[in-house]
């Protein structure tokens, strides 16, 4: 078997590895087919998230409390995945938070380059235990000012423009005294 091992040692050299890099712009000569997927989806929000979205429309952030582990779950769910039991009650939160973490993004959703960076991150909501929050944008602050632990507050869309989505909150801004 030693022979094979030696032989193999030779095969993992460059000449042993076959194939070549072909990129999109070099495709013309390679027979291929292109096709476009056209499936459409309706993603259900579910019981807990539907209530959460309804409350956002009213300008309120709510969580769902598990009395056993005493956590207020945000994003809310009808069951506590740690205690593995049904959660007990809805709790309204004040809408203030601190920045848990953030990114200064020069990429949009399709990986296109953008000049003005998007400030985005995770908020750690007041009235909920640590690590209970969601992702959102930050604004009215510069990339130099933003930092972990910064106190922030939600800035809402005008009531008539809200449609029961996470984007009913426009962004979080530095908290005003």
């Amino acid at each position: 078997m030693a022979e094979q091992t030696k032989e193999y040692r030779a095969t993992l050299k460059p000449e042993g590895v076959r194939g070549k890099s072909i990129r999109k712009d070099e495709l013309r000569e390679v027979p291929h087919v292109t096709s476009r997927p056209n499936a459409k989806y309706a993603w259900a929000a579910g019981v807990a998230m539907s209530r959460f979205l309804d409350e956002l429309k009213e300008g309120r952030i709510v969580g769902r409390k598990c009395r056993k582990c005493a956590r207020v779950l945000v994003p809310p769910r009808m069951f506590c995945e740690r205690c593995y039991r049904q959660t007990d009650e809805w709790v309204e939160l004040p809408g203030t938070a601190v920045i848990e973490t953030f990114a200064v993004s020069y990429l949009d959703t399709d990986a296109n380059r953008i000049k003005e960076p998007i400030l985005v991150g995770v908020v750690d909501l007041d009235g909920a235990p640590p690590h209970c929050g969601f992702m959102h944008y930050f604004d009215e602050m510069s990339p130099d000012e933003i930092h972990i632990g910064m106190p922030v507050e939600a800035v809402w869309k005008p009531k008539e423009e809200r449609d029961g989505a996470i984007t009913d909150i426009r962004y979080f801004r530095p908290r005003r005294k």
Binding site: L107, D108, A111, F134, M135, H136, I166, T167
Partner: peptide, 11 residues
């Protein structure tokens, strides 16, 4: 529901 309306990039 919660993340994609914010048009996130994986990075």
């Amino acid at each position: 529901i919660l993340d994609r309306p914010l048009k996130p990039n994986l990075v």
